[in-house]
Amino acid sequence: TEYKLVVVGAGGVGKSALTIQLIQNHFVDEYDPTIEDSYRKQVVIDGETCLLDILDTAGQEEYSAMRDQYMRTGEGFLCVFAINNTKSFEDIHQYREQIKRVKDSDDVPMVLVGNKCDLAARTVESRQAQDLARSYGIPYIETSAKTRQGVEDAFYTLVREIRQH
Results as ranks from 00 to 15, higher is better:
residue 1 T to L: 08
residue 1 T to A: 07
residue 2 E to K: 08
residue 3 Y to F: 07
residue 4 K to Y: 05
residue 5 L to E: 00
residue 5 L to R: 01
residue 6 V to T: 06
residue 6 V to Y: 06
residue 7 V to F: 01
residue 7 V to H: 01
residue 8 V to K: 05
residue 9 G to R: 03
residue 9 G to S: 02
residue 9 G to M: 01
residue 10 A to N: 05
residue 10 A to I: 13
residue 11 G to F: 11
residue 12 G to E: 13
residue 12 G to K: 12
residue 14 G to E: 00
residue 15 K to E: 00
residue 16 S to N: 03
residue 17 A to S: 03
residue 18 L to E: 05
residue 20 I to H: 13
residue 21 Q to V: 07
residue 22 L to H: 15
residue 22 L to Q: 14
residue 22 L to A: 12
residue 22 L to K: 15
residue 23 I to C: 12
residue 24 Q to C: 14
residue 24 Q to T: 14
residue 24 Q to F: 03
residue 24 Q to Y: 02
residue 25 N to T: 13
residue 26 H to N: 14
residue 27 F to W: 12
residue 27 F to S: 03
residue 27 F to R: 01
residue 28 V to D: 12
residue 28 V to K: 08
residue 28 V to R: 04
residue 28 V to I: 12
residue 29 D to S: 10
residue 29 D to E: 12
residue 29 D to N: 14
residue 30 E to H: 10
residue 30 E to F: 12
residue 31 Y to Q: 04
residue 31 Y to S: 04
residue 32 D to L: 05
residue 32 D to I: 04
residue 32 D to E: 15
residue 35 I to M: 06
residue 36 E to W: 04
residue 36 E to L: 06
residue 37 D to E: 01
residue 37 D to S: 04
residue 38 S to D: 07
residue 38 S to A: 09
residue 38 S to T: 14
residue 38 S to H: 00
residue 39 Y to G: 01
residue 39 Y to W: 07
residue 39 Y to Q: 00
residue 39 Y to E: 02
residue 41 K to V: 11
residue 41 K to R: 12
residue 41 K to H: 09
residue 43 V to K: 08
residue 43 V to C: 10
residue 44 V to P: 11
residue 45 I to L: 12
residue 46 D to N: 11
residue 47 G to T: 10
residue 47 G to F: 05
residue 47 G to I: 09
residue 48 E to R: 11
residue 49 T to S: 14
residue 49 T to D: 13
residue 50 C to K: 03
residue 50 C to H: 08
residue 50 C to P: 09
residue 51 L to I: 14
residue 52 L to P: 04
residue 53 D to S: 04
residue 53 D to T: 03
residue 53 D to W: 06
residue 53 D to F: 05
residue 53 D to Y: 04
residue 54 I to A: 07
residue 56 D to E: 01
residue 56 D to R: 00
residue 56 D to K: 01
residue 56 D to S: 01
residue 57 T to M: 13
residue 57 T to Y: 00
residue 58 A to I: 01
residue 58 A to T: 12
residue 58 A to V: 05
residue 59 G to Q: 05
residue 59 G to A: 07
residue 59 G to P: 09
residue 60 Q to N: 15
residue 60 Q to T: 14
residue 60 Q to C: 12
residue 62 E to R: 14
residue 64 S to G: 15
residue 64 S to Y: 15
residue 64 S to L: 15
residue 65 A to G: 13
residue 65 A to W: 01
residue 66 M to N: 08
residue 66 M to S: 07
residue 67 R to N: 11
residue 68 D to V: 00
residue 68 D to W: 12
residue 68 D to C: 05
residue 68 D to M: 00
residue 69 Q to N: 14
residue 70 Y to K: 00
residue 70 Y to V: 10
residue 71 M to Q: 09
residue 72 R to T: 04
residue 72 R to M: 01
residue 73 T to Q: 15
residue 73 T to M: 07
residue 73 T to L: 13
residue 74 G to S: 04
residue 75 E to I: 02
residue 76 G to Q: 01
residue 77 F to W: 00
residue 78 L to D: 02
residue 78 L to K: 02
residue 79 C to S: 02
residue 79 C to T: 04
residue 80 V to N: 00
residue 82 A to N: 14
residue 83 I to C: 11
residue 83 I to G: 13
residue 84 N to R: 02
residue 84 N to Q: 07
residue 85 N to W: 06
residue 85 N to K: 06
residue 85 N to I: 01
residue 85 N to Q: 04
residue 86 T to F: 12
residue 86 T to R: 14
residue 87 K to Q: 07
residue 88 S to A: 12
residue 88 S to G: 08
residue 89 F to P: 01
residue 91 D to T: 11
residue 92 I to S: 05
residue 92 I to T: 01
residue 92 I to Q: 05
residue 93 H to M: 15
residue 93 H to P: 12
residue 93 H to Q: 14
residue 94 Q to I: 09
residue 94 Q to L: 13
residue 95 Y to F: 07
residue 95 Y to V: 15
residue 95 Y to W: 06
residue 96 R to E: 11
residue 96 R to D: 08
residue 97 E to F: 06
residue 98 Q to K: 11
residue 98 Q to H: 09
residue 99 I to Q: 06
residue 100 K to N: 05
residue 100 K to F: 04
residue 100 K to C: 15
residue 101 R to T: 04
residue 102 V to R: 03
residue 102 V to D: 04
residue 103 K to L: 14
residue 103 K to Y: 08
residue 103 K to F: 14
residue 104 D to K: 11
residue 104 D to I: 06
residue 104 D to M: 15
residue 105 S to Y: 11
residue 106 D to P: 10
residue 106 D to G: 09
residue 109 P to T: 08
residue 109 P to I: 12
residue 109 P to V: 09
residue 110 M to A: 01
residue 111 V to R: 00
residue 112 L to K: 02
residue 113 V to A: 06
residue 113 V to P: 03
residue 113 V to L: 11
residue 114 G to W: 00
residue 115 N to I: 01
residue 117 C to A: 08
residue 117 C to D: 04
residue 117 C to P: 01
residue 118 D to V: 02
residue 118 D to S: 02
residue 118 D to F: 01
residue 119 L to W: 06
residue 120 A to G: 13
residue 121 A to F: 06
residue 121 A to M: 14
residue 123 T to S: 12
residue 124 V to S: 11
residue 125 E to M: 11
residue 126 S to H: 14
residue 128 Q to G: 06
residue 128 Q to H: 08
residue 129 A to S: 06
residue 131 D to A: 13
residue 131 D to S: 07
residue 134 R to W: 07
residue 135 S to E: 06
residue 135 S to Y: 11
residue 135 S to P: 02
residue 136 Y to F: 11
residue 137 G to M: 08
residue 137 G to C: 01
residue 138 I to E: 03
residue 138 I to K: 07
residue 138 I to Q: 04
residue 140 Y to K: 00
residue 140 Y to N: 05
residue 141 I to H: 06
residue 142 E to I: 05
residue 143 T to N: 06
residue 145 A to W: 01
residue 145 A to S: 14
residue 145 A to E: 00
residue 148 R to Y: 13
residue 149 Q to K: 05
residue 152 E to L: 12
residue 153 D to T: 08
residue 154 A to K: 03
residue 156 Y to P: 03
residue 157 T to A: 14
residue 157 T to D: 05
residue 158 L to P: 01
residue 158 L to F: 01
residue 159 V to P: 00
residue 159 V to I: 12
residue 159 V to M: 15
residue 159 V to A: 06
residue 159 V to F: 03
residue 160 R to L: 03
residue 161 E to I: 13
residue 161 E to P: 01
residue 161 E to L: 12
residue 162 I to C: 11
residue 162 I to K: 10
residue 163 R to V: 06
residue 163 R to M: 11
residue 163 R to I: 13
residue 164 Q to G: 15
residue 164 Q to M: 05
residue 165 H to R: 14
